[in-house]
Protein backbone atom coordinates (compact mmCIF):
# COMPACT_ATOMS: atom_id res chain seq x y z
CA UNK A 1 0.00 0.00 0.00
CA UNK A 2 1.42 3.46 -0.90
CA UNK A 3 0.33 4.93 2.48
CA UNK A 4 3.12 4.54 5.02
CA UNK A 5 2.52 4.82 8.78
CA UNK A 6 5.43 6.53 10.53
CA UNK A 7 4.09 5.96 14.02
CA UNK A 8 7.31 4.31 15.22
CA UNK A 9 9.34 7.35 14.07
CA UNK A 10 7.12 9.75 16.00
CA UNK A 11 7.14 7.48 19.04
CA UNK A 12 10.95 7.42 18.95
CA UNK A 13 11.06 11.23 18.63
CA UNK A 14 8.80 11.60 21.67
CA UNK A 15 10.61 8.75 23.46
CA UNK A 16 7.33 6.99 24.09
CA UNK A 17 6.83 3.24 24.34
CA UNK A 18 3.97 1.32 22.72
CA UNK A 19 2.54 0.49 26.15
CA UNK A 20 2.53 4.14 27.21
CA UNK A 21 0.93 5.26 23.94
CA UNK A 22 -1.64 2.50 24.22
CA UNK A 23 -2.61 3.67 27.70
CA UNK A 24 -2.76 7.36 26.76
CA UNK A 25 -4.64 6.89 23.46
CA UNK A 26 -6.98 4.22 24.78
CA UNK A 27 -6.26 1.70 22.05
CA UNK A 28 -5.37 -1.94 22.60
CA UNK A 29 -1.78 -3.02 22.06
CA UNK A 30 -2.82 -5.33 19.24
CA UNK A 31 -4.63 -2.51 17.41
CA UNK A 32 -1.64 -0.20 17.82
CA UNK A 33 0.62 -2.96 16.59
CA UNK A 34 -1.61 -3.41 13.49
CA UNK A 35 -1.28 0.34 12.85
CA UNK A 36 2.48 0.40 13.49
CA UNK A 37 3.27 -2.53 11.22
CA UNK A 38 1.20 -1.07 8.37
CA UNK A 39 -1.36 -3.91 8.36
CA UNK A 40 -4.28 -1.55 9.05
CA UNK A 41 -6.71 -0.98 6.20
CA UNK A 42 -8.33 2.12 7.70
CA UNK A 43 -7.92 4.55 10.56
CA UNK A 44 -10.74 6.40 12.30
CA UNK A 45 -10.51 10.19 12.62
CA UNK A 46 -11.03 9.79 16.37
CA UNK A 47 -8.00 7.47 16.61
CA UNK A 48 -5.88 9.81 14.51
CA UNK A 49 -6.98 12.75 16.65
CA UNK A 50 -6.07 10.93 19.87
CA UNK A 51 -2.65 9.87 18.56
CA UNK A 52 -1.87 13.40 17.30
CA UNK A 53 -2.92 14.84 20.66
CA UNK A 54 -0.76 12.44 22.69
CA UNK A 55 2.28 12.66 20.40
CA UNK A 56 1.79 16.42 19.85
CA UNK A 57 2.09 16.18 16.09
CA UNK A 58 0.15 16.58 12.84
CA UNK A 59 -1.52 13.74 10.87
CA UNK A 60 1.10 14.26 8.15
CA UNK A 61 3.83 13.39 10.66
CA UNK A 62 2.26 9.96 11.08
CA UNK A 63 0.93 9.26 7.58
CA UNK A 64 2.98 9.53 4.41
CA UNK A 65 2.18 8.85 0.75
CA UNK A 66 4.87 7.10 -1.23
CA UNK A 67 4.25 5.66 -4.69
CA UNK A 68 5.03 1.93 -5.07
Amino acid sequence: MPIIVNLDVMMAKRKMSLNELSEKVGLTLSNLSILKTGKAKAIRFSTLEAICKVLDCQPADILEYKED
Binding site: N31, I34, K39, A40, K41, A42
Partner: peptide
Protein backbone atom coordinates in the same frame (compact mmCIF):
# COMPACT_ATOMS: atom_id res chain seq x y z
CA UNK B 1 -15.50 -7.97 7.98
CA UNK B 2 -11.74 -8.21 7.43
CA UNK B 3 -11.63 -4.47 6.61
CA UNK B 4 -13.57 -3.75 9.78
CA UNK B 5 -11.19 -5.89 11.83
CA UNK B 6 -8.21 -3.98 10.41
CA UNK B 7 -9.72 -0.57 11.14
CA UNK B 8 -8.12 1.04 14.19
Amino acid sequence: QSENELTV
